[in-house]
Design a protein around this nucleic acid. Sequence first.
DNA 1: CGAGCAACCTGCATGC
DNA 2: TGCATGCAGGTTGCTC
Length: 271
Amino acid sequence: MPELPEVETSCRGIAPHLEQQQVTDVIIRQAKLRWPIPTDLKHKLVGQNILHVSRRGKYILIQAESGCLLLHLGMSGNVRILPSDAPILKHDHVDIVLATGKCLRFNDPRRFGCLLWTTTNPHQHKLLRRLGPEPLTDDFNIDYLFQQSRHKKINVKQFIMNSQIVVGIGNIYASEALFSAGILPTRVASSISKARYAKLIMEIKKVLQHSIDIGGTTLRDFVNSDGKPGYFKQQLQVYGRAGQVCHHCDNNLKMLQINKRSTFFCHHCQT
DNA sequence: CGAGCAACCTGCATGC
DNA sequence: TGCATGCAGGTTGCTC
């Protein structure tokens, strides 16, 4: 499921229900995720207030009094706010139960997500400390990206999907942003001009912000934290549209595999 | 060091 | 109807 806009949408959706609320129970039905959920998580969390909910890359940070939960939704995860006695569905792995009678329920069919606990600065956690800048901040700018691209022999798609370079650009938005910027995904990162990177940065910011504004792209199983389904697959320009006509010219869109991931582009509009 | 790829899982569409 | 196959939004961590 989640690309950055979906994670941001989830984060904003759950934050008002969690912040300044006390945790009364933690129910773990399936601890085997990408990494095991700490077995003593319940003892660490119960009784504590949740202070703040934020996002770093695709990680959701739930800051409590004595530590911080790191939540990643993987490929197929979602979080919802529900009454704590709401019926349990398949793959509902974890409930964080609150004194309000509601709970944060984490569901993840493929179990590529994770739920970890850290008692130190979460940004210094092993999984977060090497992450690149947030794409929607001024730290993600032309001087930075151009500098990073020099001497990089990989193609530009893998370059912008590398979370050490910049976080939050997943497989869908990589194709979308490169299409909007008119850059072939197979271009070698080090051979692209500064001017073209300036355009690419602008398009990355635009497509991510646009998706956040409408609430997150949904391909299959995104569910908002309120339980309302996401929407607007129809806004995608190229992703999933191989063989269909390009919206900017009369040619058919193409697909190829890059690093085992499907990649969509227009051979006429992108050079 | 970087590049390539195996691994972690289930669900769904497709083809025989 | 059943079974095998391939593919799916992510990321780490292993080899070479």
